[in-house]
Nucleic acid binder design. Structure first.
Lengths: 166, 166
DNA sequence: ATCCTTGCAAAGCGTTTGCAGGCTA
DNA sequence: TAGCCTGCAAACGCTTTGCAAGGAT
């Protein structure tokens, strides 16, 4: 697990923090230091971190912060519509504070993930009633493939049968 | 968990079983009754079942079949490229024996899932080198929303803060 | 006969929960 | 002050693993 993370612009993080505080007031939810820290860490990070990654980062300055608290707060923030879960094939829950419409690049080998925007996806209209009364709300588009480092490693490798995750 | 499942056409299941047997021969993997049963149950089901659902179904006629065996075989079939994991936000692993290009309708409340085809997604070309050397291989499109039954239940309900999964 | 695969049991990992004490509003 | 929230520890559910016995080739 990498602790390297890409920062989001401080201006945007500030906007999102204000929105977070408004949401707390509106929903009559207490604005605790723990919630603010978790939300801020998540908002500042473009890397779709796991709960554990957030926890590790916060522990540097707050060694007593327990992991279950971060889990509980993550759930709260999801309920408040301030962050969302990222869809994946397996592995631990990943979080995303970017609520704008966007797509994801996902490496099928290492799970590396990055935001991507392609206006073509956003212009495609949602079918209104697709099938059996299903009410479509939004697209969730992942572009899967190989990140540069896994593509490099792959060259010349032989696939094994068991023992190697695809 | 529901044991109701939608059947795939026997003709298609037969084709896929033949492909499964070829793949076993090609990769020199033993064709056991367990593997055949798990693959067949999966191929016959259009409902994106979990490993446990497959196991429950097979147990009816094979009470001694252990769950870990189904997990191991699922992993094998994924490695053989005969089935794939379905992307989801959370919850247990779901499997899909349909390897044709297709999209999914996903209910964000109950997890109900159904295949969907929209030629627009399939015609959109993959960008070749999107970002930082990323090699795109395929799209994974989920259309999330509410299935009919959750849409019906939702009318008139008040959302709670904690205690209700979104 | 070989050795891949299964069956069993146990461990592993990520996540959730119950309860008492603490802190925000 | 009231009661929401946290901290702690323990439980939980899904998944994986080690090892000996079994079965396909």
């Amino acid at each position: 697990m990498s602790l390297v993370f890409n920062l989001r612009s401080p201006r945007l993080v500030g906007q999102w923090l204000a929105r977070f505080e408004d949401a707390c007031r509106l929903r009559k939810i207490r604005l605790t230091a723990q919630r603010r820290s978790v939300f801020e860490a998540l908002a500042a990070d473009t890397g779709h971190p796991t709960v554990e990654e957030i926890h590790l980062r916060l522990k540097k300055n707050w060694p007593s912060l327990p992991l279950p608290t971060v889990y509980r707060i993550a759930e709260d923030l999801i309920s408040l519509n301030l962050i969302r879960r990222v869809a994946s094939d397996n592995g631990p829950l990943r979080l995303d504070a970017n609520m704008e419409p966007h797509q994801h690049l996902v490496c099928r080998v290492c799970g590396w993930m990055e935001d991507w925007r392609d206006p073509r996806w956003e212009k495609t209209p949602l079918p209104s009633l697709l099938s059996r009364g299903f009410v479509a709300e939004e697209y969730d588009v992942r572009i899967s493939g190989l990140c540069r480092s896994c593509a490099d490693k792959k060259a010349g490798r032989v696939k094994s049968y068991r023992g190697e995750k695809q």
